[in-house]
Computed example of a mutant assay.
Amino acid sequence: MTEAAASAAPDIHGGTMRFPAAKALRLDSGARLAPLEIAYNTYGRLNADRSNAVLVCHALTGDQHLASVHPTTGKPGWWSRMVGPGKPLDPERHFIICSNVIGGCMGSTGPASIDPKTGQPYGLSFPVITIADMVRAQAMLVEALGVETLFAVIGGSMGGMQVLQWAADYPEKLFSAICIAGAPRHSAQNIAFHEVGRQAIMADPDWRGGGYERAGVRPEKGLAVARMAAHITYLSEAALQRKFGRELQRDGLSWGFDADFQVESYLRHQGASFVDRFDANSYLYITRAMDYFDLAAKHGGALTEAFAKARRVRFCVLSFSSDWLYPTAESREVVRALNAAGCRASFAEIESDKGHDAFLLDEPQLDATLRGFLGAQAQARGLA
Rank of each mutant, 00 (worst) to 15 (best):
P171K: 06
D260Y: 13
W78P: 02
A34C: 10
A39W: 02
A341Q: 10
R32P: 01
Y283H: 15
L55N: 08
E220A: 10
G146Q: 08
Q162K: 05
L325Q: 13
G160D: 05
A167E: 05
L55S: 10
A310Y: 00
Y122K: 06
D90I: 02
M17I: 09
L164K: 01
F274Y: 13
D133V: 05
Q262G: 02
S7Q: 11
L240A: 08
A39C: 06
P116A: 11
F151E: 01
A203Q: 12
P364V: 02
G160W: 02
G30W: 10
R332Y: 01
E363W: 02
P116F: 03
H231S: 09
R381C: 12
P10A: 08
M106D: 09
H13R: 14
G160I: 03
A6T: 11
P116R: 08
S282W: 00
R208H: 10
G77V: 02
G30Y: 09
A6V: 10
A259N: 15
D115I: 00
L360W: 01
A308Y: 02
K243I: 03
K173C: 05
E213L: 15
G104N: 04
K23A: 13
F320A: 01
D11Y: 13
F320C: 01
T118L: 03
P219G: 03
F193I: 11
L366Q: 10
S187H: 08
R45P: 02
L267F: 10
L370V: 05
M228C: 08
A215Y: 11
Y285D: 02
A144I: 06
W79S: 00
C179I: 06
P85F: 02
D276M: 01
Y40A: 03
L248K: 14
S113R: 06
A310Q: 00
L25R: 01
P88Q: 04
D353T: 14
S321L: 05
Q379Y: 04
S7N: 06
Q270V: 05
R371A: 13
G216N: 15
R332N: 05
L383E: 03
A183L: 11
D323H: 05
Q249A: 09
D204M: 04
R218G: 06
G256E: 14
L164R: 00
A380W: 08
G110C: 03
A137I: 07
A48Y: 11
P76V: 00
G156R: 05
S29K: 09
I178N: 06
P121W: 13
G107D: 09
S346N: 03
L267D: 00
T16E: 09
L66F: 06
D362L: 07
R136T: 13
A308M: 07
F373D: 00
D291G: 15
S254W: 15
E92L: 11
G252D: 07
L89N: 09
F373M: 03
V69M: 08
R268Y: 11
R218H: 12
R185K: 07
E264T: 14
T304V: 08
H269M: 07
V101Q: 07
L66I: 05
Q249K: 13
T369H: 12
S236C: 09
D49Y: 03
V334R: 00
D204R: 12
F359E: 01
